[in-house]
Amino acid sequence: MKQVVYTIFVAFWTAVLTIIALDAMTPTAEAGDSGTASASYTLAEVAEHGQLDDCWMAIEGKVYDFTDYIDQHPTPPAVMAPWCGKEATEGMRTKGYGRDHSERAWQMAEQYLIGELADPDE
C-alpha cells in the first residue's frame, strides 16, 4: 500500500507541473477572442437560440453560445435549459440558490463569448 500511495503522490505532482508548464508555454492567442466579441446581438436575436442544441445566453451585457458546453456542465442539461435564449445573469450569479459561479467558471465562459448585447435604445 505504501508504494501505491507514494507512486500516486509522485504522479500527482508530475501531472500538475506538466499542465502548468504546458499552459506557460502555450501562446496566449485565446486572449485575442475579444475580436470576435465586437459583434452585437439584440435580446430578440438571442431568443432565437433557445434550445439545448442551439443555446445562446445574454449575461451582464455579453452574449455567449453555450451549445457545445451543455454536455460538460456539472449539472444535468435540464438545469441550463430554461436559460437558453434568455437574459441569464441571474442564473449565472445565483445558480438558482444564491451561490455565484466560481471565478474559474466565469473564466471558462469567456471561451464561449460571441459578442455584446445590443443596447435596446439603439
Binding site: F12, A15, V16, I19, I20, L22, D23, T26, T28, E30, Q72, S102, E103, R104, Q107, M108, Q111
Partner: peptide, 23 residues
Amino acid sequence: PVLLALAAAEVSISAAAATLLPP
C-alpha cells in the same frame, strides 16, 4: 483535481491550468 483539470483541457490548456490554479 487532476481529473477535473484534464476534463477542462478539452476547452484549452489554460482552462486546465485555471482549474488547478484558480484566481
